[in-house]
Each structure stands twice: as structure tokens, then as C-alpha cells.
């Protein structure tokens, strides 16, 4: 093939490459931003517990078991939607749910949990939103899977549905549960 013939077919080649890229692009989720904290130790936090204000919830609550740190708030409708499923999970499986109540009205939060049930072992109250910023949270709900050593291994953006749980989260949790400390 001469250089000229190559030159003339260049538009075809470039446009095909762009089409393939766009086709891949259609299956991506531009709104979900990969977290730089994956495989990093969970950022330090130390916050009051929702029910026992004098006690603190901190990184120690994440150690020794696989935990799901769920960032939620009563102001967030998607959190309300996933709540029932989380509750069911917390009863069925031996998973530790830690709640991070993000910039919320604590009174409303307590009322809500009283009415709908509490899936969380501990609930840390993040009044200022500073802890959420340290964790790179940019919307509620977000759920972090933290391994036994306290490292973040996965981040779920948006509500957990039964489908997402079965397909994505459950396999990860199972692998992590078998890890030795």
C-alpha cells in the first residue's frame, strides 16, 4: 500500500476507531468515579455514636471482620429505598454494617430507625461532613467494603439492589471473609 492510499483511508480508520470507542463508552458510567482509596487503609475517623453520644465510633470498629460502611442520611431518598434490603442482609448474613449518618438531623435519623429497623452495628454521626470528605464521598448512598485489616477494598456508588448485591458485592465480601489477617 502506498503512502497516498494509506492517507486516503486514514479518515475511515480514524472514524472506525472513534466508533469503537463510543460503543465502549455507551456501556460506561461516567457518573461513577473510581475512588483513589481502593486498597488503601481506611481514612482515620473518630465520631460520636448516634445512640450513645459519649461513645465514639472509629477505625477500630472496622478491624477483625469484613465491614460495610454505609453512608446515608434521612434526606436521601435512595438511602430509604435500599434500607429494607440492608436490614434483610444484616439479619441473614454475618456482615457488620457500620452506618455513617451524613449531615443529618439526628432526631429524624433515630425516629426513622425506630420505625424501620436498624441494620447497623454502630452508627457514626458525621455532623460537619468532614469524615465523608476524607472518605471521598460525593453523594449518598455510598457503601465501602472494608476488609479485616481495615483496608478499603471496594466502593459501591448509589443504592445497593438485590441484583448488585448478588452480582458484585457478595462475591467480594465472600473472598474477603476467607482472607487471613
Amino acid at each position: 500500500m502506498s503512502i497516498r492510499a494509506f492517507l486516503y483511508s486514514l479518515p475511515l480508520i480514524i472514524s472506525m476507531a472513534i466508533f469503537i470507542l463510543l460503543w465502549r463508552g455507551l456501556n460506561l458510567h461516567p457518573n461513577e468515579i473510581a475512588s483513589p482509596l481502593i486498597n488503601q487503609p481506611a481514612p482515620f475517623f473518630q465520631l460520636p455514636d448516634l445512640y450513645r453520644r459519649k461513645e465514639i465510633v472509629n477505625n477500630r470498629n472496622l478491624l477483625g471482620h469484613v465491614s460495610l460502611l454505609n453512608v446515608w442520611s434521612t434526606a436521601c431518598s435512595a438511602c430509604m429505598e435500599e434500607h429494607d434490603f440492608l436490614l434483610m442482609l444484616s439479619k441473614q448474613q454475618s456482615i457488620v454494617f457500620i452506618g455513617l449518618d451524613y449531615k443529618d438531623d439526628t432526631h429524624a435519623a433515630k425516629l426513622f430507625l425506630k420505625e424501620h429497623g436498624n441494620p447497623y452495628q454502630n452508627i457514626a454521626v458525621d455532623e460537619s461532613g468532614q469524615t465523608a470528605i476524607n472518605w471521598g464521598v460525593y453523594g449518598t448512598p455510598e457503601t465501602f467494603i472494608v476488609d479485616k485489616r481495615g483496608f478499603i477494598r471496594y466502593k459501591q456508588i448509589g443504592a445497593i439492589t438485590p441484583e448488585i448485591w448478588e452480582k458484585t458485592l457478595k462475591p467480594i465480601v465472600q473472598v474477603l471473609a476467607d482472607e487471613k489477617i
Binding site: P11, M16, L22
Partner: peptide
């Protein structure tokens, strides 16, 4: 995307 690629690749093939 299919519509686009049919029209465009057809046109550029003819061009080449």
C-alpha cells in the same frame, strides 16, 4: 451509533 457508523464508514470507504 449503528446508523452513524453505517453512513460514515460507507462514505469514507467510497472516498478511499
Amino acid at each position: 451509533l449503528i446508523y452513524l457508523s453505517v453512513i460514515i464508514s460507507g462514505a469514507f470507504t467510497l472516498y478511499a
